[in-house]
Design a protein around this nucleic acid. Structure first.
Length: 908
DNA sequence: ACCGCCGGGTGCC
DNA sequence: ACCGCCGGGTGCC
């Protein structure tokens, strides 16, 4: 009796499958157990400890079957009444297959419960008999746990086979990295043809948008097999996990639209909503002769009028005369109209052609509605977007939906938002923000009760961190179709993708374990096949075009021409003399370091010399003290205050230079910079760690001078952003300044509304340039890294404005702002000084040579003849190769290449 | 399960 | 006969 009861209890789990959501129950289901077991936040640093052949027993008691080569999951069952060490074996769908034999289970339980290792199983040869079968177990975990685990298992008589575990093939690493970077490139091919949007879409679609629409409709309607599934006889077989099932695997209805910013993702999505309702028919919408705008308008105003951005949006509408304030006000006072709801549903049902009007109504009230009816019932598309683009969505609906079409768009936002699920279901579109979502997160939240036709995540990469509330909320939507819109689907690593695939319900990868095993780990370890699989996966569900993409041999969108020319600048007699003096001096010094082999220990000094030369090329007043103290020179500085002053000066120079100073501890750009008494710059956390590890014996990683935490000097807060050192009385010009001004004056005489970007790595140079700009009456703004986000947006807005009073010149610090910066108002770019990294320059140019640019773009690079700048340009070309080779190469290699760079710069 | 293990039946060669 | 051997019953954790 007892035994039977329990057996029944466990057998229940065999019926659990991962294709069904179990949100409704609090009972711990097997699928949840597997999810929980595999939800280790960071499986990345895992290494393989070894393999072990084990046995799965008790097959005859369970329904789960496995194929040859199929992956299985191992789940601890501490509550098992027969053995608290029990380890259950389940297949991909979560059907139990059996148990690990108890002796082995006892050993594994210890390892698993103490999180010493994650154990994975693969059944290499299928069932030999129907009672037991062998399983290959592999143990994965943190390097430092490796020996403990091996010893632990050995003590219990299980010897982990550690032989033949090669490290990831480093050789292919570079290739793979490249392939990964290009993961989202070239995903266009010729997916389907073009599709015309429904009549209700008021704006004609561009060819590439029609293609996207066609692809999206196909993704929603076609019933093919998802990637890596194929039909084998009566069964559906997953070629990656070797799992097979009788039922056809659920297809992902949706995908990732990853077009570049500006290609019209919003418009295409609106077109999709209007064009592809149930059975591929257009969304049934009421049309009317009167001004439709008001309907949309009305629901928004009623619910959200207190929010500033809406007011802004309304204001924009007024201005454009799309509706009158008066009408809006009268409309606003009317009670919300909901009776259209039922009509719409009936209309939808009638369109579906499957059930009669009355039948539909009857079923609708019944709780046991079949899925088909539920599907039909779904009408609304839920759009989730960042607050910052909310008004843009409203604008776009306004703009692109035909004027005579009544589309119910509801903005689910604000404290008095309508939480009625009946109301929400009745809408055509509900828009909300990620923030609302994370606050409206419970199971009873209306957003999670409604059966959506479609859920669209705008800027979907926002949910890439699975630990956030909103990411969790996003996984619990009930929806038939799911879309992610994102210009940058991957920002850092493969990891970013998991959440996206999980949202899309891409089986079986929505369960972290299978994703980790099949894709993430192979890819991060440089496995070629893993990457290919990932590519295939992404290809199947993603459409991405960039501004450079071509369709039928023609560019998607044609950007205006861009010309780049280099203007050689001759130094004046005086400048040349000063430059040569500094150059000879520097050359001697560096030459000495090279011959002594002490370039690295005097690296700060070397950089300082180069910096001085680069600055001399721009303007003599750019010079800071050349704090020439390599460790040996420190002694002549007398007082601590003077030392501190000089260190700060030096630090300021490094920071202002924009030379992308590298921290020698983490080898990344320095964050929270501090300078040591020996004048080397590190990230504060990095060097602090060095000091805390080495204690009293701590030495500077670069020059081996003694260092102490108390001697780390930071940039004083009050000096941040203080840049008003030059006053116009002492101001003098330079050859480069002259060259720039000549260009600006010439342009102004041709067309006084031409806008220019003037770019330098030296913020002080920008300051120097302000004087002649003022003198010649140019209106300018300035954008550099020291400005607050708020100030930046304000400056950008000012510059982008087409108003007559808006500035014509932007002084831009090379590294300021992210890639997203949009400065299309400018059509001329002046790069005042060459950067170490040509990509930085390209990025900067792209800020104005991008979608939305109407004029030809003209880029001028000023390079001083016969100077370190010319050599930098030469190295730039080489640099691209170096950069690529730097992947996977060692610290020493990178340093070595730097030394050879320096030699080339100084012509040594 | 064409195994291993258990425990009862049995017992020179 | 407090053993070995035989053969039937039996079987995950």
């Amino acid at each position: 009796m007892f035994s039977n009861r329990w057996r029944f209890g466990w057998d229940r789990y065999t019926e659990v499958d991962l294709f069904t959501d179990h949100n409704d129950t609090n009972a711990e289901t097997l699928s949840q157990a597997i999810r929980a077991a595999s939800e280790e936040p960071d499986a990345d640093g895992s290494v393989l400890f070894g393999h072990l052949q084990g046995t799965v027993v008790g097959l005859r008691y369970y329904t789960g079957v496995v194929n040859s080569g199929e992956m299985v999951g191992l789940v601890r069952q501490p509550q098992n009444p027969y053995d608290r060490n029990a380890v259950m074996v389940a297949n991909i769908y979560g059907n139990q297959v059996g148990h690990i034999k108890k002796e082995l289970a006892a050993a594994m339980a210890y390892v698993m419960d103490n999180k010493l290792a994650k154990v994975e199983g693969v059944v290499h040869s299928g069932t030999k008999n129907k009672f037991t079968m062998p399983v290959m177990l592999s143990f994965w975990g943190k390097e430092e746990k490796k020996n403990t685990v091996i010893e632990m298992m050995a003590r219990r008589g299980y010897k982990l086979n550690t032989g033949g575990i090669g490290q990831a093939a480093v050789f292919f690493f570079f290739q793979l990295k490249n392939a990964f970077d290009n993961l989202f490139e070239g995903l266009m091919e010729s997916k389907d043809g073009e599709k015309e949007a429904a009549k209700s879409v008021g704006t004609p679609l561009l060819p590439h948008q029609k293609k996207a629409l066609s692809w999206m409709c196909a993704r929603e309607n076609k019933s093919g097999l998802p990637p890596f599934w194929e039909k084998r006889g009566e069964l559906y077989y997953n070629t990656l996990t070797c799992f097979s099932a009788k039922e056809i695997p659920e297809r992902v209805r949706g995908g990732i639209l990853a077009d570049d910013m500006g290609l019209g993702k919003t418009l295409t999505t609106i077109a999709l909503i209007l064009t592809n309702f149930h059975n591929g028919k257009p969304l049934p919408v009421e049309t009317c002769v009167s001004v439709t705008v008001l309907n949309l308008y009305f629901s928004i105003t009623v619910w959200c009028e207190q929010h500033l951005f809406i007011i802004k949006w309304l204001f924009a509408c007024y201005q454009e005369g799309q509706s009158s304030p008066l009408k809006a006000r009268t409309k606003k006072q009317m009670p919300p109209k909901l009776e259209g709801f039922q009509e719409d549903l009936d209309f939808a049902a009638a369109l579906g052609g499957l059930i009669s009007d009355t039948g539909f109504k009857k079923k609708k009230t019944s709780k046991k509605a079949t899925p088909t009816l539920k599907d039909l019932k779904a009408r609304a598309t839920l759009i989730i977007c960042p607050l910052s683009v909310l008004s843009n969505w409203l604008d776009q609906f306004e703009q692109h939906v035909s004027a005579n079409v009544k589309l119910n768009v509801y903005l689910y936002y604000g404290s008095d938002r309508n939480r009625s699920t009946k109301f929400l279901s009745s809408q055509d579109v509900v828009i909300t923000t990620y923030n609302i979502l994370s606050s409206d997160n419970g199971d009873k939240s209306p957003l999670h009760v409604v059966n959506w036709l479609r859920v669209v995540l705008d800027e979907g990469h926002i949910i890439r961190n699975p630990d956030t509330l909103m990411s969790k909320a996003v996984l619990r939507f009930k929806a038939q179709r799911r879309w992610i819109l994102s210009g940058t689907p991957i920002q850092n690593s493969v990891k970013d993708l998991w959440m996206l695939l999980a949202f899309l319900h891409l089986k079986p990868f929505d369960v972290r374990e299978w994703w980790n095993r099949v894709i993430q780990r192979p890819v991060t370890q440089g496995n070629k096949e893993g990457l290919q699989n990932l590519q295939t996966l992404v290809k199947c569900i993603t459409l991405r075009r960039t501004k450079n993409s071509e369709v039928n041999g023609r560019p998607l969108v044609s950007l205006p021409e861009k010309t780049v020319c280099v203007e050689k600048v001759e130094l004046s007699q005086a400048e040349r003399e000063e430059y040569e003096l500094a150059r000879n001096e520097g050359r001697n010094t560096i030459g000495r370091y090279v011959s002594e082999g002490t370039v690295l220990s005097n690296y700060a000094h070397v950089l300082a010399i180069l910096m001085r030369l680069r600055q001399l090329c721009c303007h003599p007043d750019l010079l800071f003290y050349l704090s020439a103290f390599s460790n040996s020179v420190c002694s002549y500085i007398s007082t601590p205050a003077e030392l501190r002053e000089r260190l700060i000066e030096k630090l300021r120079m490094v920071l202002a230079s924009g030379s992308d100073e590298e921290c020698s501890v983490c080898l990344e750009s320095v964050r929270l910079p501090v300078i040591t008494h020996c004048a080397h710059v590190y990230c504060r956390p990095c060097i602090a760690q060095v000091i805390s590890t080495e204690k009293e014996t701590a030495r500077c990683p670069l020059c081996r001078s003694e260092i102490k935490t108390s001697e780390l000097v930071e940039f004083p807060q009050e000096e941040m952003g203080e840049e008003n050192g030059t006053n116009s009385e002492k101001w003098r010009t330079s050859s480069k300044v002259q060259a720039l001004m000549a260009n600006l004056l010439r342009l102004r005489s041709e067309d006084n509304r031409i806008k220019c970007l003037v770019v330098s790595q030296f913020t002080r140079f920008l300051t120097i340039l302000e004087t002649p700009l003022r003198e010649h009456g140019f209106s300018y703004v300035r954008l550099d890294g020291t400005m607050s986000l708020k100030k930046r947006t304000q400056v950008i807005q000012e510059f982008q404005s087409s108003a007559d009073s808006s500035p014509v010149i932007m002084l831009l610090s090379l590294k300021a702002g992210g890639v997203g910066l949009n400065l299309t108002a400018a059509s001329h770019v002046f790069l005042m000084d060459p950067a170490w990294n040509p990509a930085t320059e390209e990025q900067c140019i792209d800020r104005c040579h991008r979608l939305g640019q109407k004029r030809k773009v003209c880029v001028t690079k000023f390079i001083v003849k016969d100077s370190v700048e010319e050599n930098m340009v030469k190295i730039q070309k080489k640099k691209q190769d170096l950069l690529e080779k730097a992947f996977g190469s060692t610290n020493t290699d990178r340093k070595a290449s730097r030394i050879s760079d320096i030699k080339a710069l100084m012509e040594l």
